[in-house]
Amino acid sequence: MSNLIMALSNGLHRTARSVAIFAVAGMFVTVMVQVVARYIFSSPPIWTEDVARYMMVWTGLLGTTLSFKTRSDAILMQSVFPPRPSVLGLIAEAIRSAAVLSFILPVIWFSFMGLRGGLAKGYLGRQSGLTADTLGIAMIWIAVVVPIAMIIILIHLAAQWAEDPAAQRDASPAEGGLD
């Protein structure tokens, strides 16, 4: 069972990485198309901005799964408890996992289920009735990345518990940063 979860997590990680790489590259190409169209042909197509923006959202949300998997999320302070397998370490890890779950489970739930009216009135259900202006496709195909990213994180979280604690790397200080 735990091998299965770890294999699933690793497989999803590879896929998310490939799609994210594709999305960043796609963003770059799309904006370049806009630049060339505007400055060389002075007629930018109207879809470039939307495509680039949606690719950015995909980049960011899939990137979120990458940073979760590689434990490179920003933390304010290192755990004061000793690492697993000590009991305190287990408790700290359980607390961290509970925090992740309380954030992502409502997102996953409400992506599919509405307050009233079940599946059809969930976030994705509502988005399926809307059309992305310039692209003419249903918004659901763009918005679906929200639950996808959260479900991937859920599986990575399960894999972290399935992993041998000794094999886990500590969160390394991020060498690339935003600030």
């Binding site: 509405g114 307050l115 509502r126 809307l130 202006d133």
Partner: peptide, 16 residues
Amino acid sequence: TGLLELSLSDVRAIAQ
């Protein structure tokens, strides 16, 4: 979803 009752919105919201 019924969480908001009335909104002054862009016409685009309807056009979507």
